[in-house]
Design a protein around this nucleic acid. Structure first.
Lengths: 192, 192
DNA sequence: GATTCGATCCTAGCAGCGCTAGACATTCGA
DNA sequence: TCGAATGTCTAGCGCTGCTAGGATCGAATC
């Protein structure tokens, strides 16, 4: 059995290598540069090997997205727990979210801009995605205000952050004012 | 000279045909289906003809985006002028914006999701794009609140709408609650 | 009216894409 | 030690955006 175990472990290692390499390449040169040929070359295997781990490129993007969701969830929770008071917590959350998007643009794209073949807003939504939303909800639920459903409030707040993140990165919004936009957003949306 | 004029007119007609066909095809089957070959076939010319009008596919997307921006601007202005009172106006604006995105997903993608090679937030931003932002500003500036820069407020409100539009269409947010999200957004952001 | 010349358009092809069939080793179990 | 099963690679399919070079056609000139 030990031989099989070793093989399984090696396979799992290789799968992680694929995802990490895809992410690295995407972060360096954008997702357009992540072709199956280049990816295969970087991991020093032939193209078909990729297809023995993933159904296709889409699934590789999806794997990067799940990894990103987990990281984002923990980043948000860390920022929230370091702040005291609902208001400060929400500001920290917003800043952390936008910073994550800015620092990991390719991962953010994988999560929300590209088709990673992942289900959303359903029961069969992958756990990391649900958990990332939950991480937002934990802090945002506090400031939803009376009579407002915390989930709905979180959706709206999240959408605003997502809009800021994507429009800024696409050059639609000048990045200098990001801080003031966050301030305004928190001021108005959060009920303290 | 009349012959030259006729030729110029025919050329302009053909250019409009290309853009309209691209838009139609994108709206029917998504931008992935808009290949230069299919597009050429639909307009009954060969591929290279496309390149005598546009530098490449990106510029065709850009042309659709500009067309869309003009339409959105007039839709937003129409909705705003039909409503009386700042608060009602903003609600109408928000609904109109989201409705535009929902009814013209391919055009919306061309404007904000895809790379149409257009400049933003610069002086050399194409007029229709600046005007679309101006259309939002006209109504949103009224409810920015004292001491808040109208442009900054418009950016934040717009980002929120953009986030709602994209996340909803990508299946990240259940569409049933859109109305309540808009209500919440206007309630909190707009100062009446 | 014939001829030249320039504009216009098409055929054919390039390199690269995601993905896969089938051949080839290599390793495992009998 | 041999057959089967597993793993991997080479080669290739149909597609993409884009372009070079040749054919064709219409307008201007003699």
């Amino acid at each position: 059995m030990s031989v099989q175990e070793r093989k399984q472990r090696e396979r799992a290692d290789r799968e992680r290598l694929i995802v990490a390499t895809a992410r690295e390449l995407a972060e360096q040169q954008g997702w357009d540069a992540v072709t199956t040929r280049r990816l295969a070359e970087r991991i020093q295997y032939s193209q078909p090997v990729l297809y023995s781990h993933f159904r296709g490129k889409r699934e590789i993007i999806g794997a990067v997205a799940l990894e990103g969701a987990a990281e984002m969830a923990s980043a948000v929770r860390a920022a929230a727990s370091a702040a005291d008071g609902p208001r400060t917590r929400v500001t920290a959350l917003a800043r952390t979210y936008l910073e994550f998007a800015e620092r990991n643009p390719a991962v953010y794209d994988a999560m929300f801009q590209l088709d990673g073949g992942l289900a959303f807003a359903h029961e069969d939504t992958p756990e990391p995605l649900k958990d990332a939303f939950a991480a937002l909800l934990e802090s945002l639920g506090e400031v939803a205000g009376d009579g407002v459903h915390p989930g709905l409030f979180t959706e709206v707040f999240w959408a605003a952050l997502h809009g800021l993140a994507t429009l800024t990165r696409a050059g639609r919004l000048p990045p200098e004012e990001t801080g003031r936009r966050v301030e305004l957003l928190v001021d108005r949306l959060a009920v303290v």
